[in-house]
Design a protein around this nucleic acid. Structure first.
Lengths: 144, 144
DNA sequence: CTCCATACTTGCAAAACGCAAGTGAATGGT
DNA sequence: ACCATTCACTTGCGTTTTGCAAGTATGGAG
């Protein structure tokens, strides 16, 4: 059977994921990076959840450590810093979008339109590809 | 376009999810409930991550509050308590499995066999259905 | 050289966590 | 009926993490 020996190993992927982004602020940063096109320190700081600067610095550093983001100095204005998502971070898109569909189902106060969940359910791969392209588009507008 | 007006609303589903299970111990409890067939307080306590009893009690209560688990007294031994996953918790399976596939890709030390990721990638719906059935099977073995 | 913007650091109080011990209800054995 | 045990939490307390406010370091404009 394809799913044999199910019991023990499944724990670890969950624990690994929890270790990399298993806290509220990491969720928010990943959202801002993957879905909101935020790249600069100042962009992340300006999110409506009002993250404080020490936590932001800490989480950004952790994201870099865990290979989710890379850190870059803006060559056009060297006092500014931006971050880019790695393939590892982008690889979370399917899970993230699935999670968001779940939220739209169970959060009575969701602000997401039904069209989002419908699009993902109808054709997850197309939906994921669309978000990938958005990420590429944002990145293309940044300094080399 | 199906994905129009993308910017603002996507934030909220992520924040909602973070609020419900956005911490390490909630990840672990959901794993144990959805994938390891654990139902009793003592089962969760015995996980290899060594959760302490106050945190376990706190998280279980929160899961009940947020409608993820329901709490039941074992009629056959009324000093024992078990929890059952609601449809809301079960609805997280697709996101959880997608997340686990991601972990198997990026965690060098993953213990998950490649067959797991392959099965999910080949046919996600079938894979999800298989885990749903496992959940039903476990639940069927519990007192009414 | 001064001023401003930007990206962090630092200090400190408050909250969350984690360990160990304690409590109370339900069983089980005699 | 009595007592020890199991089970599911609670409580206390020291440690760690968080969050707010203020400070610092570097870069760039004038």
């Amino acid at each position: 059977m394809a799913h044999a020996s199910k019991q023990h190993w499944v724990g670890c992927p969950v624990r690994y994921a929890a270790g990399v982004f298993g806290d509220k602020w990491s969720f928010i940063l990943l959202r801002d990076m993957l879905l909101h096109g935020k790249r600069y320190y100042g962009d992340f700081l300006a999110s409506e959840e009002k993250i404080s600067t020490n936590i932001l610095a800490d989480r950004l550093a952790k994201m870099v450590e865990t290979g989710m983001f890379t850190r870059h100095i803006d060559p056009e204005k060297r006092s500014k810093v931006f971050y880019l998502p790695t393939a590892k971070a982008r690889g979370l898109l399917p899970a993230f979008l699935a999670m968001m569909v779940w939220s739209t189902e169970y959060d009575e106060a969701t602000e997401a339109p039904e069209s989002f969940a419908k699009a993902f359910r109808d054709d997850p791969k197309a939906s994921i590809h669309w978000y990938e392209q958005q990420i590429d588009r944002v990145n293309a507008g940044l300094p080399a």
